[in-house]
Design a protein around this nucleic acid. Structure first.
Length: 281
DNA sequence: CTGGCTCCCTGAATGC
DNA sequence: TGCATTCAGGGAGCCA
């Protein structure tokens, strides 16, 4: 389940290349091959292929959990949702199970083979948009947690005016962009806040600690190149450093108390009943 | 504004 | 043991 750190990791791979493949920058799309039509949120397959062919990848960005490939004059937005993944690979590579879309690139001068971008998505929840105006989607997002506009003061203020429990509020991409189930549970644990705490009951010092916890857990996730869980493997190892996520019954790394699980807003939620006591209930 | 529910899917887990 | 059924899981949209 790619969240901000996993998407950022993929963004850096695509921008800078890896030991196994080159950078995607400067590559011109020659064709699109679609194997699961619903992957395209907008436009339809015919228009997508026509509009993307001949355009060149100028930059790779990220906003929240959206990956942004800038192909002037349009932007390709990719949301990986639960099981989406991207590979840059030789155009003649073996097709993999659950591959949904290929973007073929033209041969670059000096290279001896062509490359393609493969979008793989077991659960078929991932979506791709090709838009003139990406702000139409991105404008709905809350602040970017690792940028300077996201401050402890902003968070304290924003929490103060909300009558919601912390867990669902932090998962709300319109409130803050990029957090999913893993990093929300981890941030709340580090901040010592119970997931059911009412946002309006969070004091400024608690908000400051939550702000720092969110920043640190995301930065650590990026440093470890994200988490590899379930059947999706991207090379990251942050899953080995979880304090609470999917550790029900195992000891809290801080106090040794068994981690508990409850369902909040239809989401599995993991927390330490001793460390996370502030609950506002 | 908030909370609850549904849908999108597959594969793992459970039931018979 | 093998087959059939259930359900978890993240995010967004809809409705009350």
């Amino acid at each position: 389940m790619p969240e901000l750190p996993e998407v950022e990791t993929i963004r850096r791979y695509l921008q800078n290349g890896t030991p196994d493949y080159p950078s995607i920058l400067g590559r011109t799309v020659s064709a699109a091959r679609l194997y699961w039509p619903k992957t395209l949120a907008e436009p339809d397959a015919e228009a997508f292929t026509r509009r993307i062919a001949g355009h060149r990848v100028e930059s790779v960005g990220r906003r929240g959990k959206y990956l942004l490939l800038h192909l002037p004059p349009e932007t390709l937005l990719i949301h990986l949702r639960m099981s989406g993944d991207l590979r840059l690979e030789p155009i003649a590579a073996l097709n993999q199970p659950h591959d949904r879309l290929y973007l073929d690139f033209v041969l670059l001068p000096g290279e001896d083979r062509r490359w393609r971008l493969a979008f793989n998505d077991t659960r078929k929840f991932g979506r791709i948009w090709l838009l003139d105006d990406p702000q139409r989607l991105l404008g709905k997002l809350g602040p970017e947690p690792l940028e300077d506009t996201f401050t402890a003061e902003w968070l304290a203020d924003a929490l103060h005016s909300r009558h919601r429990q912390l867990k669902p509020l932090l998962l709300d991409q319109g409130f803050i962009a990029g957090l999913g189930n893993i990093y929300t549970d981890e941030a709340l644990h580090r901040a010592g806040l119970h997931p059911l705490t009412l946002a309006s009951a969070v004091t400024p010092p608690q908000a400051a600690r939550l702000w720092q916890s969110i920043r640190l857990v995301l930065q650590e996730g990026i440093q470890r190149q994200g988490a590899s869980i379930d059947w999706v493997y991207r090379g990251g190892d942050f899953q080995n450093y979880f304090g609470v996520y999917q550790r029900t019954g195992q000891p809290c790394p801080v106090c040794g108390t068994p981690i508990e699980r409850l369902v909040v807003g239809q989401r599995g939620t993991h927390f330490c009943p001793v460390c996370q006591t502030a609950d506002g209930r």
